[in-house]
């Protein structure tokens, strides 16, 4: 009898849990792109000025001197390594900026030349990440008269292990 009750309870519990998961494996932040702090990868000193109002308006976040200056800095800091040579593709770099122009929460996506998900050489990813973390010409969004936090992204194109001017 006791076993039967436990079995029924288990089935009931399974049913309830299934109902709560609207679609299996799907989880969404409040807004696509909201990026939670990851203690393993993120700088603990990076803080939003107001975490309740972080803009998803890429056009409002600009680099000093524009895309030209950004690319020039990337090219200038990039050091080619023969281990990178076999990689051609794209790094999509997402990041957050706070109202004091500090950046953090960097996330990378890597795609091959056909825009399929791919895995680049580890040293290349680490090198790209260290360069983008060193960029300090970003400007926070100024929106409706307020200095705000925001999220942005940019693309880095690589052919045969070398960053390309786009």
């Amino acid at each position: 009898m006791k076993m039967k009750t436990i079995s029924l309870f288990t089935i009931f519990l399974f049913f309830i849990l299934s109902c709560n998961n609207e679609i299996e494996g799907t989880y969404y932040e409040n807004q696509i792109g909201d990026t939670a702090y990851n203690p393993n990868t993120d700088n603990k000193d990076f803080k939003f000025c107001d975490s309740t109002n972080v803009l998803h308006k890429r056009a409002l976040i600009k680099y000093n001197g524009g895309e030209k200056a950004l690319e020039a800095e990337l090219l200038n800091k990039f050091v080619f390594n023969p281990k990178f040579e076999h990689f051609s593709g794209y790094f999509i770099v997402r990041f957050a900026i706070n109202c004091k122009n500090k950046t953090g929460r960097y996330r990378l996506q890597t795609l091959d030349s056909s825009f399929l998900k791919t895995k680049p050489p580890n040293q290349l990813s680490e090198h790209i990440l260290s360069i983008i973390k060193s960029l300090n010409g970003w400007n926070h969004p100024f929106y409706k008269g307020k200095d705000l936090d925001g999220y942005s992204f940019f693309t880095i194109k690589i052919i045969n292990g070398e960053i390309q001017k786009t």
């Binding site: 696509i32 792109g33 890429r58 999509i92 770099v93 996506q109 825009f115 999220y151």
Partner: peptide, 13 residues
Amino acid sequence: VPYFKRGFLIEGL
């Protein structure tokens, strides 16, 4: 659309 606008190319595609 929001994936593309926010740098989530893999998900958008």
